[in-house]
């Protein structure tokens, strides 16, 4: 864990209700400088509301949020770069003036912003498109523009919601490189995404929110170790999906990956396979669960 002792962001038991809707009931986590932290959860779990409470867009009904050692002040806001899931750019305005406008709101001088912007636009292949209206850009280009808007003012805290949405593999790799560079520069990064393989590749620690509550929190490796035994991998033929205790099955090149419900033992699965007619097993082993498996297992458990 590449963390310092003092968290940049500390969220403690925050709550938020919208009328009768309890959007967030009890969420807690800490994020440290120099780490990429995964904020995960199914749709409607309360991730966006939690982010908005962290950013003081919404006031929490309970609990507390500490940013850079205290309450979020106007000066501290300028040290944050936020990339919402829905692209927050003016579609009918030109790219360059829009990005400069957003940077000036973050305290940058317009001339300095323009100078800094040139490098970003060139790096992300948008320089030739700087005079185009944002709505004329492709979805991937708009996503890259949003990434520039988040980073242009060189923030200390970076919060990105689905940063790879709409990006092709080449640009996804470029975006990952940029995020990793920011981490190496000591920035505090929170990444919210449903792409679990990206979380496994980038994040050191995660929090999983479900139904407005923290259900998993810690280092990715520890969490995976704790969930070991909750997945098996096998080769063979037959109807593996109907086995009791199997939450989900993924098949690829003759290998079947079975995610198991909490409480289901791989030995139980092995015994069931041995007694069932019409099933032929050529290979059976206990698999280290992927974050995807863990996500599915935890979320499905929450629905019971």
């Amino acid at each position: 864990m590449s963390t310092a002792n003092t968290p940049t962001i500390a969220v403690a038991s925050v709550k938020k209700n919208f009328g009768q809707v309890k959007a967030v009931q009890d969420v807690s986590f800490e994020v440290y400088p120099g780490e990429i932290f995964g904020l995960l959860g199914p749709n409607g779990a309360g991730k966006t509301t939690t982010i908005r409470m962290m950013l003081d867009i919404f006031r929490p009904d309970g609990g507390s949020v500490s940013i850079l050692g205290g309450e979020l002040s106007e000066a501290k806001k300028q040290r944050i770069g936020y990339m919402p899931e829905d692209r927050g750019l003016y579609k009918d305005l030109k790219l360059e003036p829009t990005l400069i406008f957003l940077a000036t709101l973050k305290g940058m001088d317009a001339a300095a912003a323009k100078k800094e912007l040139e490098g970003w636009l060139k790096r992300l292949d948008l320089y030739e498109h700087r005079d185009k209206k944002i709505q004329e850009l492709s979805k991937g280009m708009q996503q890259k523009a949003q990434l520039i808007a988040t980073l242009l003012h060189n923030p200390d805290i970076i919060i990105v919601d689905e940063p790879f949405s709409g990006l092709d593999p080449v640009n996804t790799r470029l975006a990952k490189e940029i995020i990793e560079e920011q981490r190496q520069a000591g920035k505090t990064i929170i990444m919210s995404t449903h792409q679990m393989y990206q979380v496994e590749a980038l994040c050191q620690r995660i929090v999983l929110i479900n139904n407005g509550r923290t259900v998993l929190y810690g280092e990715v490796d520890d969490i995976k170790r704790n969930f070991a035994g909750n997945a098996v991998e096998l080769e063979g033929h037959g109807d593996f999906a109907s086995l009791p205790g199997v939450l989900e099955i993924r098949s690829q090149n003759g290998t079947h990956h079975l995610a198991l419900a909490p409480g289901t033992n791989p030995q139980d699965i092995f015994r069931t396979l041995a007694t069932r007619d019409g099933i032929k097993v050529e290979r059976f082993e206990i698999a280290e669960p992927s974050l995807d498996d863990i996500f599915v297992a935890v979320v499905k458990e929450g629905k019971r």
Partner: peptide, 16 residues
């Protein structure tokens, strides 16, 4: 309404 539709409001509200 344009800022609401474009979701720009969310970015702006972090700055002002």
């Amino acid at each position: 309404t344009r800022e609401k539709e474009n979701r720009t409001a969310e970015v702006l509200l972090l700055s002002l």
